[in-house]
Structure formats: C-alpha cells, structure tokens
Amino acid sequence: MSHDNLKVFPSVRERYESLVQAGDLDADPSQQRLASRFDRLIHDLATKRLATKSSALGWLFSRRAPRHDIVKGLYIHGDVGRGKTMLMDMFHQLAPVKRKRRAHFIDFMADVHDRINAHRQALKNGETKQEDPVPPVADALAEQAWVLCFDEFTVTDIADAMILSRLFRALFERGVVLVATSNVAPDNLYRDGLNRQLFLPFVDLLKVHVDVVNLDARTDYRLEKLNRMPVFLSPLNDETSRLMDEAWHAATGGATITEDSVKVKGRTVIIPQAARNVARFTFADLCSKPLGAADYTAIIKRYQTIFIDSVPVLDQPRRNEAKRFIILIDILYDHHVHVVISAAATPDKLYIAKSGTEAFEFDRTASRLFEMQSQDYLALAGKLEPATEARSAGI
C-alpha cells in the first residue's frame, strides 16, 4: 500500500483511470493524453537511471561532457483548475527517482536566493574563492534532486528573471530534468516585465529542454462537484462535519493530504491540511493567532480554495478574533477565492456585540459571506485569472 492508502499504480494513466472508476474524477481526453505523456517521461527517466548505473563514472562525466542523452521534461500550461497540478503530483509520486523535488516555484526561487546570499557571505568571509555563486548553487541543487517538479511556474520578480537563464543553463548541464505547471505559455512568462529582453534567453533555453503542453481540459470537475454542495454550513453539529468532509473529499479528489507552510516576512505560517490547490484550517488557526492581511494574502497566493471549520459566534471579548475574521473575509472576497465554511450561526448572527467598530464592519462581512454562496460568485471564482498580488480562486 502507498502512504496515502491507495493502491500503488505502475503508471500515471492507471492511477488516473482508477480515480475515474472510483467516481473521484470525470474522464477527460486532454487529461488522459497528458497522463500518457507523463508515463513516457517516467520510461525515459527509468532508462536514463539504468544507463547511469551502468557506469560508476557516468554521473561524473555527464556533468562535464556535452549532453547527448537529454531527457526532455514537460511544461504544462492552461487555465486555472484544469488538472495540471493533480497530474504532476501523480507523476512525482510514481517517478522512479530517489533524488526528486516537488516545490512551489516561488519557494524554490526563495531557496535559490538564500543559497546565493550565503555563498556571497562565505566569499566575503574568505571561506571560498569562487566569485560566481551560480555554479556551486547549481551543484548543490542538482545533487539534491535531478528531477525538479514546480507548481505555479511564474516570473514576476526582476531578481528572479535576471538569474533564471544562468541558473537553469547550469542545472540542465548537470542533467536536471524539469517538470512545471503554469497558467501561461512560456512565451508569456514575465510579460511586460522590466528589462524583459534580458529574460528572453531563458525562454529559448526552456523550450530546448522541455516539451510544452497546453492542457485544454474542460472546467475543473472538482469545482463543478463542489459548486453543487453548500459552501456555508451551520450550525455546528455532526451533520455539518460530515458535509464539510464530503466537500473536502470532492475538492481534493483523493489526493494525499499533507501539512504545509508559507513564509511571510521571516515568519512561518502553518497550513494544517493541504492538497493540490486546496487548504483547510479551523477558525482558531486563522483568527486566534496573531495573523494579518499579509499572512492571508500569502496563503491565497498558493491555495485557491479555502476550508474554514468551526467559526464560533463572536462577541465583544473576542473582538480581536472578529477583526481578523473581517480582514480574512475581505481578502478572500476581493480575490474571489472559493471558500467552504462551517459556523455556529448564519452570517448575520455570527457577531452579536452591538457596539464598537467591529459591529459595524461585520455587517459588510455578513453581506459578503452571503454573496460568496451565490452561483454568480462561485462561477466567477472558478474563472478568474490569478491576481498580481494573490492568485484568484478555483480548484
């Protein structure tokens, strides 16, 4: 048995079809073709691994000699909620490679910049004579993983844009295979960005080392299923808990549930349960801790559907929690995030204090919570493109 209590399948296509048969997915021809393409990549990786093992010095020489055995990775782009992340995660689980890494691209680049800064500090301290940080950073990254899987490949930061070409040229020279999902085609990366002409060599390099696939699947089956379910459940009881779990299962589609975290201004915010583009919290996780707008925005940059369990009735002694909840709902609403909530009362009865600014502000929160249950809001949540400062909703 696998760690997520599902049968271990030898191929992405078989894993995909098993979820279709279980009713967790609706079969989609575009997704089926991509699953088969991932299986070809798995075959190529397995062949490369065997070839490398045939020579004890194969890996050493492969990092220095011109590469004739390049395994082309995949760059999958398409609209939000088409199944890109789901299929890449299946591939990552099944890829016959020990040294592999799956990361959000933003987190990977933050790691890269940390490594570069550490190298420069070491140079300053006289601990190394290597002035160029890129080769040693590429060495360390390639040693850690020669298959890199990136979710949400996007370039908005000029610091990232300026280093990508040199970094990935070094990684590809070291035999690293790239698999990435994105909402945009390679030619549209860093579009209208500052000094974009300096970034364009990376796009050309990328196309040499990956096959570009447009996943033109239909609207997300999970969003369709979730939109048929209630998204605000009250009061808090066993039936509400059952319906929340049912909606969670529909949203995650049988994916492995893990704990995650995001970095915000040097702090770590824990996501207790996460799968694909969906995260689940309790009210206490989000509003009883000293979190603010920056934390909530960082969460929705990564997760496009948010579950919030056990929102209590709030009063004057809990006004700080109420204030955080007001800010949270404002951010979720403004970015059209798909939200599923269980609460002790209906939105208009969640805050019972009659005085203070929170009482006035919560009227807007209640109104937004009602609107977020509407079909118009849910339809918009499933179709918007990601915002610049935070991704839009949809799963």
Rank of each mutant, 00 (worst) to 15 (best):
L164C: 14
I116H: 05
A142Y: 12
L141Y: 05
T156C: 02
A159Q: 15
R169W: 01
P136G: 02
G175R: 05
D157T: 10
H119T: 01
I158M: 10
Q130R: 10
P133H: 04
A122R: 13
G175Q: 09
L171I: 09
V134M: 13
A140C: 01
E173C: 10
T156H: 13
Q130I: 15
R115G: 00
R169I: 00
D157F: 08
I116W: 02
R120N: 12
R174L: 06
V176Q: 14
D139V: 07
L167C: 10
D132Y: 05
W146P: 04
R166Y: 04
V176G: 12
G175I: 08
E173M: 11
L171Y: 12
S165Y: 15
R115A: 14
P135C: 08
A138H: 07
A159C: 07
R169F: 04
A170V: 05
V176S: 09
F168Y: 12
V155K: 13
D111C: 01
L171G: 06
K129N: 12
D114N: 11
E152R: 09
L171S: 08
E173Y: 04
Q130N: 08
P135H: 08
A138C: 04
L148C: 09
L171E: 11
D139P: 00
D111T: 08
A122I: 01
L164I: 12
A159G: 14
I158N: 07
S165P: 00
D139L: 06
R169Y: 11
M162H: 11
P135A: 08
R115S: 07
D111E: 14
E127L: 13
A159N: 13
T154L: 11
A159F: 07
T156G: 03
P135Q: 11
V147R: 10
L171N: 09
A138P: 08
V134F: 09
C149K: 06
A122Q: 10
V147S: 09
V137E: 08
M162V: 07
K129T: 15
G126Y: 02
H113K: 13
V134P: 02
A161Y: 03
I116K: 03
A140T: 11
L167K: 10
P136V: 01
